[in-house]
Design a protein around this nucleic acid. Structure first.
Lengths: 201, 201
DNA sequence: CCGAATCCGTAACTTAAATTACGGATTATC
DNA sequence: GATAATCCGTAATTTAAGTTACGGATTCGG
């Protein structure tokens, strides 16, 4: 029974940590401010997460789950429409406040440990699924990969989808994208990919 | 006469600042460590740069000059070969240690001021030149923009060229690219752009 | 050669954040 | 209902970095 309350409490703390990270950055997100904001005690924070990097590693792990859930929503289906839908959700996620905040934290970590975990939980789990989607499109003759691997096409599609938007969000050079922009870019990326590798008629 | 010595000294200090930034990150690059490494005094650092952000703003300004110089090397000419050459140099620059370090510093700055300056000195000055290059290719019938503006094509080309490589470098998820990789990507990006918007025969 | 300015080396000073410690309240378990 | 565990609120401790201050050395202009 109390497991549930504990999970709810963790979610509250981690939500507060995200909010602080978004507002103040990694260095500015202090443990005291987090304790006050989440209504938690320092003792709880350190007892649960070990130290400050540990707390943000927990955030990264939770984010990885979210990404997987979003992708699982479109599992099973295939085709250009699916690719567009996935692209729309994915771009919103990649340029959304949480991913941006986590990437900032990873960029601030000189050891590269946070960055490695973020890449492992994010790109490394997303790309195989995209490649899978494209491979199934190839099997259904909806795209002709030529001599390109599905992985290479997935890389290309992601580049077309996101470009350097995520980096520009991370350094604060541009504001968040709205739903329309995500949709337009997802359509455009998929259209360009299909024009580069059109299915044999 | 002493202007020259002063400039040399500034370069030494800023080189040391880059090295520290690359090794320790923005938070870890302390003013004391910089003073020791550069053989400079705290007094000089603060007298010349005002404060720590001011020092890194100077680094960003110097980086912007470097980028412009690289682009100016290929001024005047046009065509696919030029685009490939520019892409090769540009990608090496974007994913090189200095740009990566600066982007990390910008990501660590919660105010977004460093990010704004970095984007202004980097992307905002680079993209018009790329767009110019592409517009000249269109004028010479080497590419058919259709109803796309040169600016949109430049965006597309940059996305094809760099994708999310720069972000992955910034969070430390991948090592630096070698010359061959830069060349291959520049060729591929230009080839894809030309296949998407082929010149009328 | 001399005064003025600049710069180095080092050490204070100040602030702030990570981490630890602890008394009191709340909750779970028997 | 008592006892143990958990957690809150707050404060103490420690460490470290940004910034300022200053005596001595070096350099520049006359």
């Amino acid at each position: 029974m109390r497991e549930e309350a504990r999970l709810r409490r963790q979610t509250q703390i981690e939500d507060a940590a995200y909010a602080l990270l978004e507002e103040k950055g990694y260095a500015g997100a202090t443990m005291q401010a987090l304790a006050r904001r989440a209504g938690a005690s320092m003792e709880t924070l350190y007892s649960w997460y070990g130290d400050k990097p540990g707390l943000f590693r927990a955030l990264i792990a939770r984010n990885a789950e979210t990404v997987q859930q979003v992708l699982d929503g479109q599992a099973g289906t295939a085709g250009a429409a699916t690719l567009i839908a996935v692209g729309e959700s994915l771009l919103a996620l990649l340029t959304g406040p949480r991913a941006v905040a986590l990437n900032r934290a990873a960029a601030a970590d000189a050891t590269g440990a946070l960055g490695a975990e973020l890449a492992a939980g994010g790109r490394a789990t997303v790309m195989p699924r995209i490649a899978d989607l494209i491979a199934r499109m190839a099997a259904a003759c909806q795209i002709a990969p030529g001599d390109e691997t599905p992985e290479a096409l997935a890389d290309l599609w992601l580049a077309l989808l996101a470009g350097d938007l995520q980096l520009r969000r991370v350094i604060g050079a541009i504001p968040a994208l709205n739903d329309t922009e995500c949709k337009v870019r997802a359509e455009r990326a998929t259209r360009h990919l299909l024009r580069l590798f059109p299915p044999a008629p």
